[in-house]
């Protein structure tokens, strides 16, 4: 099943319904293009192989959401609460996060470009222990430059 639950949520949001909770959601290979989602709650969701282009999430409460690339582009997240958000590239581009509360944000490149964070309250970590976010970069081999 690819993205059916989230796409359902998107569809209801577009029809004006709000606050469909998505707790513990795991989606793989999902692509969202130009979708506006309003008043959605995401809690502990994990999205893998995700491509977000020009997507807007408005009036949302995002808790413990993890977005894993390869490409996260033109994403706009508008509070009121953005908490424990983790975005993993390799490419994160044109990202805009608007508070008022942005908390425990983790962005992992290697490329992060055009980042805009707006919030009356920006906190780098929620209280309590955390897991280090250092990516594992395994070197498979090398290609020598023929020139």
């Amino acid at each position: 099943m690819i993205g059916t639950k989230l796409l359902f949520i998107a569809a209801t949001a577009l029809m004006g319904n709000v606050a469909e909770p998505s707790d513990g959601l795991i989606e793989n290979g999902l692509s969202l293009n130009g979708i506006a989602m309003n008043g959605i709650n995401f809690n502990g969701a994990e999205l893998n192989g995700l491509s977000l282009n020009g997507t807007k999430l408005n009036g949302v409460e995002l808790n413990g959401l993890s977005l894993n690339g390869p490409v996260i582009q033109g994403l706009s997240l508008n509070g009121p609460v953005i908490q424990g958000l983790s975005l993993n590239g390799p490419v994160i581009q044109g990202l805009s996060l608007n508070g008022p509360l942005i908390q425990g944000l983790s962005l992992n490149g290697p490329v992060i470009q055009g980042l805009s964070l707006n919030g009356s309250s920006l906190q780098d970590a929620a209280p309590g222990p955390s897991k280090p976010q250092e990516a594992t970069a395994r070197v498979v081999g090398i290609i020598l430059d023929p020139s």
Binding site: G69, P70, N88, P90, P110, A135, T136, A137, R138, V139, V140, G141, I142, I143, L144, D145, S147
Partner: peptide, 24 residues
Amino acid sequence: IATETEILGAKLVVSVDGRAPQLV
């Protein structure tokens, strides 16, 4: 063994967090 000059400009094939390899 490749010299340091030969390694400069070479591209490492790297897999980040188990994802598809990229060139570094």
